[in-house]
Design a protein around this nucleic acid. Structure first.
Length: 242
DNA sequence: AACGCGGGGTC
DNA sequence: GACCCAGCGTT
């Protein structure tokens, strides 16, 4: 059996104190979430902020983007790389207008049919915009699940059945959209790819990561100085009692 | 299941 | 230099 009683409240609690703030976190509008996620595709969030803000200013809704010229849209993605993504901005709203009369469906499988929307973005819209659980798995969430439950899987973690199943269970939280933002920041700052800050982790006690002992003994020891400096910014949290 | 994509930052 | 980033479409 999977133990996940305290995971979400603790990650959310950590997030309320230490989380990052981004403009797309102040809306539930599925259009804006979609635009943000298109831009965040393999791209650092900090890099997306100015581009997103200007884009939403110019194209605040589905219809305004539908009327836009392709060349004008390309100017926005020019500084983000992966230029083929500009197709998504154009074709997604065409599809939404044609098939859904401009209104986003609150259904995972229907969202998946929109050009440019894959499993992750469909899940993000379901949780953030519609407050419904979905199996949202990005590379960070996959890494967290693999570590915390000591699964020791390797390869393409995001597509492993077991990881997707656990992610779905995790997102059956009362506020799945909030949990998404929280776990994204938590995995970016604490349970990060290299040298996770285990000593600042509110979940350390119940974490079954075998990688951690390896990390503590071998990898992080030469970097104690670095870890201490980073650790100062984040208070260790007590476990939730609920 | 594996691969390419890209500018921009970090280590 | 090597590696990573709120993934997706293609093969």
């Amino acid at each position: 059996m999977i133990n996940m009683v305290r995971i979400q409240p603790n990650i959310v609690k950590w997030y309320r104190i230490n989380g990052r703030d981004f403009p797309w976190r102040h809306t539930k509008d599925p259009y804006k979430i979609m635009i943000a996620e298109f831009m965040l595709h393999r791209t650092k969030a900090e890099q997306v902020v100015p581009v997103y803000s200007k884009f939403i200013e110019k194209y605040p809704c589905v219809k305004s983007l539908f009327m836009a010229k392709g060349n004008d849209i390309k100017k926005f993605t020019a500084h983000l790389g992966l230029h083929w993504r500009s197709r998504h901005f154009i074709e997604s709203v065409r599809y939404i207008i044609k098939k859904f009369d401009g209104k986003f469906p609150d259904d995972y499988d229907e969202l998946r049919k929109i050009p440019g929307i894959g499993e992750y973005i469909a899940g993000a819209i379901m949780t953030v915009s519609f407050n419904k659980p979905a199996p949202v798995v990005d590379s960070n969430i996959a890494r967290f699940i693999n570590r915390y439950y000591g699964l020791n899987l390797d390869g393409e973690l995001r597509r492993k059945r077991e990881i997707i199943r656990i992610a779905y269970e995790l997102f059956k939280y009362k506020n799945p959209g909030l949990f998404l933002f929280a776990i994204i920041d938590f995995t970016a700052v604490i349970c990060k790819p290299r040298i996770p800050l285990c000593q600042n982790c509110p979940l350390e006690k119940e974490c079954e990561n075998t990688e951690i002992t390896l990390c503590k003994n071998k990898i992080t020891r030469p970097n104690q100085q670095q870890k201490k400096q980073e650790g100062k910014k984040y208070q260790k949290l007590e476990m939730d009692s609920e």
